[in-house]
Design a protein around this nucleic acid. Structure first.
Length: 432
DNA sequence: TCTGGGGTCCTAGGACCC
DNA sequence: TCTGGGGTCCTAGGACCC
C-alpha cells in the first residue's frame, strides 16, 4: 500500500509559513523575471487564474481582487521541502521523494486504520513544518496519486466529492459503491500519465471517466496507444507496475536554461549568459560525481513577439573526453554559441544542457595530476566550496567572446572523432 | 513591456550488419 | 534477371511529469 503526501499549493504554502497574513488572500508565486504564475493559492484558483498564467495578464486583479504576487524564492521552498521529506521519511519503512512537494510512502506495516494514520501524518506535518498536505492512499502509485487528487479536490471544491474524503482519501477503505462513484466523477485527464493529447484521444473514443478507463482491456490499450498507457490502466486496476524508487537515480541529463527577461541582441551578452549556464550545469554534474560527454547549447527568439523575426539555433558539441571541468564545459558551450549565433535577432531565451552523463570513476590521483590541466580536480572542488560557503556566483568563470571561432570543432554527426583541443593557460580563470 | 525551468520514457524510422 | 529478413544501434521528436 502506498501513500502519496503532497503539499497543497506548495510554494504559496511555503510563503505563508513566514507570512501568516497571507492566509485567506488570493496569492500567486511568480516564475523567474516575474514572468508567470507557477503556484496559486486556493483563493487565486477560485479567481480563475490558470497555472502558468502570464503576470501581465492577471496583474489587474491585484487592484480589483486584492491578488498578491510574490517573486519565487526557490531556496526557501527547497529548505521547507527537505524538512517535510525528513519528517515523512519516518512515516513508513520506505520513501520515494518524487518532487519538491511530493513523497510516496510505503505503508507496509500500517495494518490498522489507514485513514486515521493519514490524518495523524497530516497533522504532524502541519504542526511541525506548517505546510498543509493532501494524502492519498492506494494499492498502486497511480491509485495513490489519484486518491491524493480526490483528497485535495474534495477539500477545495465542496460537492466535487463526498466530504469525508477531503484531506485524506484512502481508496482501499472505500466500499465498492463509493469507489465506483468516485471513479465516475473523475475525468481521465486527472490520472497520472494521461495528459492533454491522450485525454483528447480517449474522449474521442468515448472514454471520459476514470471508471471507463479502468474498464478497458490492457491489451487493447497497448495496441491503441502504448505500453505506457497500458501500465497506467493496469495500475488503476490495482496491479502494481511502477515500483517505489527509494534510491534516487543519477540524472541522465542536466540542464540550465533561462528566459532573459528582456531581449538581447549582442553576442557578448549571449556569451555571458551561456558561460553562466555552463557554470551552473557544471556544479550540478559535479554534485552527482558525474562527467558529461556532450554539451548542448541553444538560443532562441520569443515566439510571443509576433513581429520579430524568429530564430532558434542549437548545437551539440562533443567533448574531447568526458569532463566535469567548468573550463572545458564553458569553452565547449561558447564554441557552440559561436556556431549558432546569428546577428540581428532579438534573443529571449537560451540554455546549456549536459548530455551523455556518466559516473566519474577517475581516481583522485588522476584528478590531482590532471590529464591536461594540473590540479584540475582541486580547482573545481575549491570553486564549489567557495560558492557554497559564500553564495552562488562568488567565484565565476570568465569567457572571451570570440574564443574558439577559428578552432577545430565537430558537429554531432562526427562525435566519435576527436572534437577539438583548447589551451587553458591563457584563459582568465576566475575573479573573486 | 511583460509569457518558467527543469526532467523521464517511449516510439518510429533510418543506417548498418550479416 | 531474380533480390530476404532479422537484428541492433542511434536519433529526433512526442508525450508526459512536477
Amino acid at each position: 500500500m502506498f501513500a502519496l503526501i503532497d503539499g497543497n499549493n506548495f510554494y504559496v504554502s511555503c510563503e505563508r509559513v513566514f507570512r501568516p497574513d497571507l492566509n485567506g488572500l488570493p496569492v500567486v508565486v511568480l516564475s523567474n523575471n516575474d514572468g508567470c504564475a507557477i503556484a496559486r493559492s486556493n483563493e487565486a484558483k477560485a479567481l480563475g487564474i490558470a497555472m502558468g498564467a502570464p503576470w501581465f495578464q492577471i496583474k489587474h486583479m491585484s487592484e480589483s481582487h486584492g491578488l498578491v504576487a510574490l517573486s519565487a524564492n526557490f531556496a526557501l521552498y527547497g529548505d521547507l521541502s527537505d524538512r517535510v521529506a525528513s519528517l515523512t521519511a519516518g512515516f513508513g519503512p520506505r520513501q520515494e521523494i518524487y518532487s519538491i512537494d511530493e513523497s510516496f510512502i510505503d505503508l507496509a506495516g500500517v495494518t490498522r486504520d489507514q485513514v486515521a494514520y493519514g490524518h495523524r501524518m497530516r497533522a504532524r506535518i502541519l504542526d511541525w513544518v506548517g505546510i498543509p498536505c493532501g494524502i492519498g492512499i492506494g494499492s498502486t502509485k497511480t491509485l495513490a496519486k489519484l486518491a491524493n487528487h480526490v483528497a485535495k479536490t474534495a477539500e477545495r471544491k465542496p460537492g466535487s466529492y463526498p466530504i469525508q474524503f477531503a484531506q485524506v482519501c484512502d481508496f482501499s477503505a472505500m466500499s465498492p459503491v463509493e469507489f465506483t462513484d468516485v471513479m465516475e466523477r473523475t475525468n481521465v485527464d486527472e490520472v497520472w500519465g494521461v495528459g492533454r493529447q491522450i485525454s483528447n484521444q480517449l474522449n474521442d473514443g468515448g472514454v471520459r471517466t476514470v471508471a471507463q478507463l479502468m474498464a478497458l482491456d490492457p491489451a487493447t490499450v497497448r495496441r491503441g496507444w502504448s505500453v505506457v498507457l497500458e501500465r497506467t490502466v493496469r495500475e488503476l486496476q490495482g496491479v502494481s507496475c511502477v515500483a517505489l524508487e527509494d534510491v534516487p537515480a543519477d540524472k541522465k541529463e542536466i540542464a540550465n536554461t533561462r528566459s532573459f527577461g528582456h531581449v538581447i541582441t549582442e553576442k557578448y551578452q549571449l556569451v555571458e549568459a551561456v558561460t553562466d549556464f555552463a557554470t551552473r550545469a557544471g556544479e550540478k554534474v559535479r554534485k552527482q560525481s558525474g562527467l558529461a560527454g556532450l554539451v548542448h547549447v541553444f538560443i532562441r527568439t520569443s515566439p510571443f513577439r509576433k513581429d520579430d523575426a524568429q530564430y532558434s539555433g542549437c548545437i551539440t558539441v562533443p567533448l574531447r573526453r568526458p569532463t566535469c571541468d567548468t573550463r572545458h564545459l564553458v569553452a565547449a558551450a561558447v564554441m557552440g554559441l559561436e556556431r549558432i549565433y546569428r546577428p540581428g535577432y532579438n534573443y529571449a531565451k537560451g540554455g546549456v544542457m549536459l548530455l551523455e552523463l556518466q559516473p566519474d570513476t577517475r581516481i583522485q590521483n588522476e584528478l590531482d595530476l590532471g590529464d591536461d590541466v594540473p590540479d584540475k580536480g582541486k580547482l573545481m572542488a575549491a570553486l564549489d566550496s567557495l560558492n557554497q560557503r559564500y553564495g552562488k556566483g562568488t567565484v565565476i568563470m570568465g569567457s572571451s567572446g570570440n574564443r574558439g571561432s577559428d578552432r577545430e570543432w565537430s558537429m554531432k554527426q562526427e562525435r566519435r572523432t576527436p572534437a577539438y583541443t583548447t589551451e587553458w593557460e591563457d584563459m582568465p580563470i576566475a575573479r573573486a
